[in-house]
Design a protein around this nucleic acid. Structure first.
Lengths: 326, 326
DNA sequence: GTGAAAGCGCTAACAA
DNA sequence: TTGTTAGCGCTTTCAC
């Protein structure tokens, strides 16, 4: 049997309430506290979080919901969350919904009752669904914004701006854009960033349509891009950019001489691609960590309950896949 | 306030125990069960797992400890665990120890008291430490074997055999091997596989030493391999193989014409490398799922408490990075 | 400053 | 089949 407060109380010759106070920081005489702590340590006492949660109403745990842990983007987010959680001694339930919206809603329903809060990565669900399922008081959206819910997002519009300016500075005048899922918030943000250059006389943004935000989507996009007059391409994300790189190589189009390629997100893959990929870096792990702080009321004056909207800066990381126009 | 069994009981006009029975599968009349279920659903009732766990002694949750979620290998393992967990309605605490052995022991200590069991990925800790910290009754080791603890591992010896035979069939006679962390179980297994070919007269296995099991480790290994007479190389894992591929490309050594490369683990990166990587596929997600079943006593007759040792088959996936000797 | 007792939400005896 | 009751381990009034 596990050691309980009872055991510690008996061994220390005090009451259970004194043990509880000594361990949780109530008002106890210093000598008593010390004695209790010593006994607790000697007995290897670990408080039962469930029992504590039952009475305090706080579980000390929170939930993280992601569409796919295999996607390096979400793995990075999860890493940021777990790292911060470890620092503040908070448990993290992770739910991988496998891109299934139904599983996502189920996860929200379960976790909202069994945790102190939910960090939600939901690129695809509709605003209304999210608003219906989530509790605004203790839900923080990661990398997506929905009015009425707290969120931590990256400044995608500015990231797009940096990418296009970079390519323009390299002499590119016709830049293809490979879009992602049409209904997603991230897609809309990217397009908003591109729209800024609509009035730029010397520049043409050529949309080659939407593809799946995957390696295969990028392979598909490769041919579409080569069919046009573009000398550079901005991809929806690094997975797409990597597929693009492959297809270009297979078609004999040398990067960056024939075509410059810029990705999005700066996942670890970007540095390992061939050639290494120029990419708009998004602070994925930091977003996770800040989201957690918001949930726990540790983010300075901001809390999730107040409907905080945090925007994190993006940075263009220049590698070998982008170069001067030939 | 959340709805409780009390609320459901009142609304359904029955006692709390009837509600409990109706919801957990006790003996209740079909009509009552149906009525209770309907009311529970209407009220959006979600049982408080903490309260349930307090009395049943089972939390319905388990813990997964990994060194690094960013590593695709462990992301795959986590995916397997969470997918199976979702199917059996079980929560998963994930703890990313960031390769820190101290954090790992802390995670074990916390989770063993707050979950029904622990799935542990610990490539580096020493056997004795693990045996001291873990409870053999409800701990399952993933991708590592320690006498006295249950484990789910891949047949690495056979995987190595397949890789070497593949290269030999392609005409290679001098095969370099890039080793990983010297003290790890996985490293020893790979070496055991290679040892089988020690007496093969027409074959020479050239060890080029140990490197970090990362992309950078592979870059480093590239030069070491090129300095020798080998025409093919087997890398510790796919991350190393990818770094190798990069360095070989940078040095002008065409793969597979000048050098065949075979990796290990078949992470998603393998299919996206340039050229796509031949790799020994390890059933990462299946291992996670089976580990979970072992913990929950759902794996047929086997349970973690009995010290089960499951060995999963490996398969060589041939892609473009390996070819006939020139 | 300390102890006794109530009770968080739930399940499992035990009665009926 | 159903209801009543005790109690899981803990924190928190409320007395003292």
């Amino acid at each position: 049997m596990r050691t309980t407060v009872q055991d510690v109380a008996r061994a220390a010759g005090v009451s259970v309430s004194t043990v509880s106070r000594a361990l949780t920081g109530g008002s106890v005489s210093p000598s008593t506290r010390e004695a209790v702590m010593a006994v607790a340590h000697r007995l290897g006492y670990q408080p039962n979080r469930a029992a504590r949660g039952l009475i305090t109403g706080r579980t000390g745990n929170l939930g993280l919901i992601v569409p796919d842990l295999r996607n390096p983007f979400f793995a990075d987010v999860a890493k940021g969350v777990t790292a911060r959680a470890r620092a503040v001694d908070c448990g993290v339930f992770i739910s991988d919904t496998d891109e299934d919206p139904v599983a996502e809603l189920e996860a929200i329903a379960t976790l909202r009752h069994n945790t102190d809060g939910i960090l939600l990565c939901s690129p695809r669900s509709r605003d209304a669904e999210l608003l219906a399922a989530a509790d605004p008081q203790n839900t923080v959206l990661l990398h997506r914004r929905v009015p009425g819910l707290s969120s931590v997002v990256a400044d995608i519009v500015d990231g797009t701006r940096q990418a296009i300016r970079h390519l323009r500075a390299l002499g590119h005048r016709r830049i293809a854009y490979v879009s992602g899922p049409e209904d997603s918030w991230a897609t809309r943000q990217r397009l908003a960033g591109l729209a800024e250059f609509g009035s730029d006389a010397g520049l043409e943004i050529l949309s080659v349509g939407s593809v799946a935000p995957t390696f295969d989507g990028g392979v598909l996009a490769g041919d579409l891009v080569l069919a046009g007059p573009a000398t550079a391409v901005l991809a929806y994300n690094d997975l797409v950019a990597t597929g693009l790189l492959h297809r270009l190589a297979a078609r004999g189009a040398v990067v960056p001489e024939r075509m410059s390629v810029v990705g999005y997100d700066d996942i670890s893959l970007a540095a390992m691609s061939h050639p290494p990929l120029t990419s708009v870096a998004v602070p994925k792990d930091r977003a996770g960590a800040i989201g957690l702080d918001l949930l726990l009321g540790r983010a300075g004056s901001m809390t999730a309950a107040q409907g905080a909207e945090v925007i994190l800066p993006t940075t263009l990381v220049v590698r070998a896949s982008s170069g001067a126009r030939h």
